[in-house]
């Protein structure tokens, strides 16, 4: 039997392949089979004819997206938001992981970690209500406090740029506990002898963090970065829709692909046009992830995903 053939591989590692089988099946079922739906993007969908029976219509479904220049604006917004969210949330997650790791009191450590994790369980719908009740002009918490302090109330719904900060803040607030778990696990796997040796050599906390912890967890940081960059064109619809809603004043700085598509097509009930937008996102995602991975493979071969 050919020593490099597929069959030989399969036989040699049959236990490993068997173990991977459920996962492979699941991915196939959930990620590959629905991919057939891509053809919807090129069809004139009718409810009664179904996905495969509807007629082809070329690139017709893509037109609305680029019609008035909005497509490019929302693509830009989507990418910038995701980059910003990626950087802030990963940065905070690494910081929090290091803080928690350096904490000494066992109970304090557990309690603070749980509290930081908690927002992960709060749905965006509820967060949307929080946001409205904090920032609304007449009865919001923020303005009530300002008025009590005899300061002029502010109308944040008039200043689109501030929402970049608000959205980034809530995104980090919600995700940081979750992401930091990964980094905490990564820090725990660092050989404690390194820290002990450093201590004997007289390194202080900062030196330990910068010369041991961060270099040791950098592979994890790269992996997280790569995995997230694949989603860079997917606006977190829940987050944007619940926090901003249909507030046209803020669209210039808060509109992402997903919310724009949703809003444009909500009255038409056409599902082929959103499919076209999703297809566009997927193609761009594919290009970006290949490019970034290729770049990392060249510069730091050990850290590339594939």
């Amino acid at each position: 039997m050919n020593k490099h053939g597929v069959l030989y591989e399969l036989r040699k590692n049959r236990t490993l392949f068997l173990m991977a089988l459920p996962a492979v099946l699941l991915v196939f079922l959930i990620s590959y089979i629905p991919m057939a739906g891509i053809i919807l993007a090129f069809k004139d969908y009718r409810f009664d004819l179904g996905v495969f029976g509807s007629h082809w219509n070329g690139f017709e479904n893509f037109k609305y997206f680029f019609n008035s220049g909005t497509g490019l604006r929302v693509t830009r917004n989507t990418i910038l938001y995701n980059l910003l969210n990626l950087i802030t949330s990963q940065l905070f997650a690494v910081m929090i992981a290091i803080f928690i790791h350096e904490m000494r009191g066992k109970y304090f450590k557990k309690v603070s970690q749980s509290i930081i994790f908690l927002p992960f369980f709060i749905s965006w719908t509820i967060v949307g209500v929080f946001v409205y009740n904090i920032f609304n002009y007449e009865t919001g918490t923020l303005n009530s406090v300002l008025k009590a302090l005899h300061m002029a109330p502010v109308n944040l719904y008039e200043s689109p740029s501030i929402w970049i900060v608000i959205i980034c803040f809530f995104n980090s607030w919600k995700w940081v506990g979750y992401t930091s778990v990964i980094y905490i696990a990564s820090i725990l796997s660092i050989d404690s002898e390194c820290f002990e040796a450093a201590e004997i050599d007289g390194a202080n906390v900062f030196q330990k963090v910068f010369y041991i912890t961060i270099p040791s967890i950098s592979p994890t940081i790269f992996i997280m970065f790569l995995l997230n960059i694949g989603r860079i064109l997917r606006g977190d619809f829940q987050m944007f829709y619940q926090i901003v809603g249909n507030n046209g004043q803020l669209f210039d700085s808060t509109d992402v692909i997903d919310t724009f598509v949703f809003r444009s097509l909500l009255t038409s009930g056409d599902i082929a046009m959103p499919a076209a937008a999703t297809f566009y996102q997927s193609v761009l995602c594919f290009v970006i992830i290949m490019a970034v991975n290729g770049f990392i493979r060249r510069t730091r071969p050990d850290n590339a995903l594939f």
Binding site: Y64, N67, G248, Q249, F251, S264, S268, M273
Partner: peptide, 27 residues
């Protein structure tokens, strides 16, 4: 029948929500 102008309708729907709602509320 909106089929021949569905792309334009989608764009207009979006523009109305983005630019005319704030005007209607005097923002």
């Amino acid at each position: 029948d909106f089929e021949p102008v569905k792309n334009e309708m989608a764009a207009v729907t979006n523009i109305v929500q983005q630019y005319s709602f704030p005007l209607n509320y005097g923002y």
